[in-house]
Amino acid sequence: MNIFRLAGDMTHLFSVLVLLLKIHTIKSCAGISLKTQELYALVFTTRYLDIFTDFISLYNTVMKLIFLGSSFSIVWYIRRHKIVRRSYDKDQDTFRHYFLVIPCLVLAVFINHKFTFKEVMWTFSLYLEAVAILPQLVLLQRTRNIDNLTGQYVFLLGAYRALYILNWIYRHFTEPHYVHWITWIAGVVQTLLYADFFYYYFQSWKNNEKLQLPA
């Protein structure tokens, strides 16, 4: 474990905590895409199929349980909680899941390191995670007033991806050379999707203005 990986995991954890804080204390999910949250629940479910079969470390297992538990509870809150669900704007969050899920599944079946169920599911989760933020980014663009917590949430998610790239560069020079081009390409694509958001995020921060993405 290097410092970039740890920092990446912590920003990822903070992003989830910020979102749960917004949902749990303010009882609002305004500006949050249920589609993206459902895709993340699917990402973690398919990626962590090895949770009970391959033990890596206690840290690893605990973090996996946190990401699984938090992603499903966020989906539950937005769909079922009697107050939270009222703030969900269904008409704005129109992105179709299958536009992302089906191409990722097809890609994972054909492009993977090993054609086994677990490996294909793991590869699928990488492809899907890369694009799962799209419904959220589309929703942000449609939202005239992006509240602070939503902005922080997306920023932390983007920071997590950027730190993972630094982690891979570090690992590349310090560890035995593994084949990881699938992780790299999916990860770089995922990080690039945040580039536009980062630009406007820093602009609003520099000019001390409210964050707003151009339509």
Binding site: D50, N60, H113, K114, P176, Y178
Partner: peptide, 10 residues
């Protein structure tokens, strides 16, 4: 020598 990647990340 290149080996398959371990799934040790989150």
């Amino acid at each position: 020598k290149k080996q398959p990647q371990p799934h040790d990340e989150l």
